[in-house]
Write a protein that binds this DNA or RNA. Structure first.
Lengths: 191, 191
DNA sequence: CATTTTATATACCGAACGGTATACTGATGT
DNA sequence: ACATCAGTATACCGTTCGGTATATAAAATG
């Protein structure tokens, strides 16, 4: 692994573990066995470092979503979108949790400013899916937003729970689990 | 307002706005028009300050939940629990959002250590509600945890959306909205 | 071989960090 | 009148912060 990638990996781990503001650049370069000017050579600033970490993993999410979005049937579509989120989560759990944490962090914080545009992308993908399936959901009365929010809430809290119970990622998320979750979302808790 | 309360209010606002780690004690006391030794006189440390902010608002939540939990019917119970969350949210939106942010923050962060026990309390309240209603939900096959997680996800993401659209708290959350959200949770999106 | 470019280190900057030793002030109790 | 004590301020502590000026060594380029 080249030093640039090494720095990004070390930073990601520390940001995830201790929080963006709580980690100093000194700590990052020490973990990588390098020095500060090297970090500033590649990224220009602490903010630039976070930006590159985030951007380097966004394209992967977008291609996962593009596959999922092709599905016309709403039930299958929702399953696939949830599947895309879970796959993305499984590929790098620390990164996913870091994104979640930064999304919920303070609005005026540097890290939030970097991450927010990406989270809008995530959310818009879900919202578009509901809007394209409007004809199958009856009169939604403009509830697309509420559906998208609920969907994101259910999926992300599910992943959060997964992570707390199995932070080591011993086993991947199975299709059956995702289908059950979507079943509950579509038809309620009584089924 | 006495200086202790003033410090807590200023700190809460700054922690919410900029993030716990990003705010220095100097900034807090300046906003309050006081000096550092005063802060350390009352709270002992920055951590102690956060602790008091959090603890001072927990009892209120617990009494709201205790009222809601008395309801035997699962539909009405869920509505009441959601109502309790919303009321609590409406009473002090900045505090609620601060708690959310800190709950999602890094595990090894000082702020997380302070807030985590409280969030466990929140979650356990919901979990208990589902467990007490087990007989009305058929065979849950141990899905209480999943229900509780989904419920928390739906409610918290709903409040998050509310907050983004109306951070000024111009109007309270109406019962109809909560009932609709719970309807969707109980019976799915097709209703 | 000389020159430029890329990548790294040493050593440092001023500012801000969390926290404290000490002194003062005004009210309270005796 | 005096001692006590809660509350507040001045001035300071050592450490760490994000960031940089400068040097150097290796690799690519002419």
């Amino acid at each position: 692994m080249d030093n640039k990638t090494l720095l990004m990996e070390c930073a990601k781990h520390l940001f995830y573990t201790k929080g963006y503001d709580a980690v100093g650049v000194q700590e990052i370069v020490e973990r990588a066995g390098l020095t500060k000017p090297t970090l500033y050579y590649y990224f220009g600033s602490k903010r630039g470092l976070l930006q590159e970490i985030v951007e380097s993993r966004m394209s992967e999410f977008q291609s996962l979503m593009r596959e999922a979005e092709a599905e016309p049937d709403i039930r299958e579509l929702l399953y696939r979108v949830a599947r895309a989120f879970c796959t993305y989560f499984d590929r790098d759990r620390e990164f996913y949790m870091l994104m979640m944490a930064l999304f919920f962090s303070a609005r005026e914080n540097e890290a939030y400013e970097v991450v927010h545009p990406c989270m809008v992308t995530f959310y818009d993908s879900v919202l578009r899916a509901f809007e394209r399936a409007a004809d199958q959901l009856g009169n939604m009365r403009g509830r697309q937003r509420q559906f998208a929010i609920s969907f994101a809430g259910v999926v992300n809290y599910y992943l959060l729970m997964r992570f707390e119970q199995d932070p080591e990622q011993k086993r991947e998320i199975e299709d059956g689990e995702i289908r059950e979750l979507m079943q509950q979302f579509l038809y309620g808790v009584f089924t």
